[in-house]
Design a protein around this nucleic acid. Structure first.
Lengths: 226, 226
DNA sequence: TCACATCGTCACCGAATCGTCACATTTCCT
DNA sequence: AGGAAATGTGACGATTCGGTGACGATGTGA
């Protein structure tokens, strides 16, 4: 669980020091010096937590944070902001921006380590509910948006992933196309029912042999093998 | 679906911040500052969930929670308690009070949002959990759309399944062809009455020995053995 | 900007399912 | 027993349903 961290700061020294201290505490650490770099890395490797400097060369850290929170695939990533003074803390943490915590510069590695640990632990607690589905060798990591079959990664698109998640959340239960549309696409969205079929086909295709785990119940809907 | 939330807290700031963050996540939110207000609002607008501070000016939140749980019309409302420390958690969430979850102050809106989402989802699932009919070794699971006879699966078509369900829902009672048409095919559908006979035949055939459980009541209709 | 991935829709096909009919059988009545 | 009415049964054509491949629109990263 929660192990991978991205550190974003434009000062090479701070970046390196932070990286080292976190690595020493057992985390996998990546680094980025700009907001763009950071976003690219986020999309690529989906870390569990981002330590984000408020001041970056290309765009403010607040901006990056906002992008993270408004991107569905990233919204589970925890964010710790690095800020010069404790001023705008209220705005940063939580409300307007949705960061999970902040640390004022200058900070000791130990302090950061403690915050990181606390945040990640909280994250784990939240996620233990059912963010991880596992059935018949098929594994879905909801928070990380990943799908494994016999430990081999299967690349799914957003819709395919949500579709599979909806089915796997209630194994054995038949879900009508209407229900699936509602759950995956959202309520009141105007999409043909048959669209579900198409996505189901693509999903089965990608799942390969595991595609058989999805049953078609003629005249009713689809169901995941119990 | 679960959308409406009541937030109860006596601190205006927290109240407003919480309200905002929940509204932003797409919920309809009402607020109350006292226990009495909260109960009034509950009775009036029946929200799906209450976020309830433990400390209120007029009466403890635990008290409010107890009232909710012991009022039949309100017992479906989910409750999330806000508490200062993780101390009395067991008592709160467990049997004594019957809250569904708790969040310790201070909390980030994100954290609360996640809890809310989880709780509401759970509620929906429980309510959708549907019938399971079982008679004379014949078993019908509506939500899974499965039919078992002595633990052996019997594959039924949609119509056959609905027909059998209609009969099994009222064992011993005779259902006319008209009634069955209405129930299985829907009202105002133009289908010959004799169509029911045909489906009944196919159904009995598939049920094998259990087919005898369906009696024909000459001149009236069909009935499932009591 | 371009290439590429994703998504929604459509049209077509084969197969499962359905509805109806004609005929056989049973039941009930006189 | 004889006949009428109701139900069982088998066959057949019609319809529905889901799988599938293709296409165009849209969005997104390089």
């Amino acid at each position: 669980m929660g192990r991978r961290i991205l550190v974003v700061d434009d000062e090479p020294d701070i970046l390196e020091l932070t990286r080292l201290s976190l690595v020493r505490e057992g985390y996998e650490v990546e680094t980025a010096a700009t907001g763009e770099e950071a976003l690219a890395c986020l999309r690529r490797s989906r870390p569990d937590l981002v330590v984000l400097d408020l001041m970056l060369p290309d765009r403010p850290g607040t901006d990056v944070c906002r992008v993270i929170r408004t991107t569905p695939e990233l919204s589970d990533v925890a964010v710790i902001m690095l800020t010069a003074r404790g001023d705008e803390v209220d705005r940063i943490v939580g409300f307007e921006l949705g960061a999970d915590d902040y640390v004022t510069k200058p900070f000791s590695p130990r302090e950061l380590g403690l915050r990181v640990k606390a945040i990640l632990r909280r994250g784990v607690e939240e996620k233990t509910e059912s963010e991880h589905l596992k059935q018949h060798g098929l594994e879905l990591d909801l928070s990380r948006h990943r799908c494994l079959h016999r430990d081999e990664e299967i690349a799914l698109t957003a819709k395919e992933f949500l579709l599979l998640a909806a089915l796997m959340r209630r194994p054995g239960r038949v879900l009508t196309r209407e229900r699936l549309l509602e759950e995956v696409w959202g309520e009141g969205i105007a999409v043909t029912l048959r669209t579900v079929d198409t996505h189901m086909k693509r999903l089965r295709e990608k799942l390969g042999p595991a595609g058989d785990l999805i049953d078609t119940v003629r005249g009713v809907g689809y169901r995941f093998r119990e």
